[in-house]
Design a protein around this nucleic acid. Structure first.
Lengths: 208, 208
DNA sequence: CCAAAAGTGTTAGGAGTACACCCATGG
DNA sequence: CCATGGGTGTACTCCTAACACTTTTGG
């Protein structure tokens, strides 16, 4: 019986609308050659599960240094045509100001896809992705997770658009700002962003 | 690389104080022969993870038909002296009116232990148990889970003692009853329990 | 001066918490 | 009649949700 890790890595494209995207790789080897899949692969005998997840992410996509959390394990017989494979799924968050992913080992291509318009996925990866999305939403409501998806300096409007993108609904500006202020997630900086309009106060996360 | 399942099975001893207990087996085979451990074992090639968890529970302890939910996967190298073993942990809940567990395959003994007074555990099972306990507590606060720990008919006081046992603190009787009523978790029955004192209204779960 | 995004307060309803007394029964 | 656990209401606080206008800047 073999064990793999698969990673559902979310990012946010800061294109005004702030669309939520997931990192996928186009498989370069059978099975499912040419099909898009979550990055992942077999766990080595001497590494922990989380280490394996980080290594696979780096090898297959060049993405490094991410927030990572274990999600769920999927192990139905028949989920992998190569035989019995149990996968431990992780979810990860990266800010969009990182260099774009590059295809690595066993991958023909690596890129982000908007969660609203995904290609057909290999194995049971559609189910894994769906599970990750659900977790991301609940995490966001109970804890402050989500900050990892933004660049180090950001405006409150950007933070709000992030939450709206993940939750899939609009939020009230004043209530959202009160909510953020009540926790103390963010620290105001001495800078503001001079966009074409009224300048916006910049913030960073508290902690790190 | 091999895959096991381990089950953290909670029950409630209805001894007035309502103590929370966990099912453990005394290992009858190496490694850790003679040490107490969570029930569990290797996943067969043709069964799902959850099926494996149910089978192991039945084989090792005679316990059947339980509420079961996946908890977390533990896979650090070195956690099992037999080599690299990844375990998928489940947590389970049973009502206390079931017949007592019986030692089965590979188990010298099987019994419940109060979570407040546990023996030394094999492998990394102490960490797994601790994780399960944490999950049980948070589940209880956000959802109505916990009902599975009671017999089919129960009084509100019994339900309250259950919550107190799991949360580890006392709850206000009136507030607790209002909380239960606000969700609609329970349905009143036409019976009451004639205990030595004022009879108590019996309830069952909605949608059992 | 206009377009565009930033920023800001008040009110109403719901949920949780603290708190004390009467009731029904069996012995 | 008394000991025991069953059962009930109110007031306060806090969090959430609804809702609209003014400010600053670049062009």
């Amino acid at each position: 019986m073999r064990v793999t890790v698969d990673i559902v890595l979310f990012t946010l494209r800061p294109d005004g609308a702030a669309t939520l995207e997931v990192l996928l790789v186009e498989r370069g080897v059978p099975p499912y050659e040419g099909t898009w899949a979550l990055p992942g692969g077999f766990v080595h005998p001497d590494e922990s599960l989380e280490t394996a997840a980080r290594r696979e992410l780096r090898e297959e996509t060049g993405v490094d240094d991410v927030y990572l959390e274990q999600l769920y394990s999927f192990g139905d017989p028949g989920r992998d045509p190569r035989g019995r494979v149990v996968t431990v799924a992780y979810y990860a968050l990266v800010s969009p100001d990182r260099r774009p992913p590059e295809a690595g080992t066993d991958a023909r291509a690596a890129r982000f896809w908007p969660v609203a318009a995904l290609p057909k996925l290999a194995f049971d990866h559609a189910a894994i992705l769906e599970y990750g999305l659900g977790r991301l939403r609940t995490k966001l409501e109970w804890t402050g997770v989500g900050f990892e998806l933004l660049p180090p300096k950001f405006t409150l409007s950007e933070l709000q658009r992030l939450h709206e993108a993940i939750l899939g609904r609009d939020l009230d500006k004043r209530n959202f700002r009160r909510w953020v202020a009540a926790r103390d997630f963010v620290v105001p900086l001495k800078e503001s962003r001079r966009t074409g309009r009224k300048p916006a106060q910049l913030f960073r996360f508290r902690g790190r």
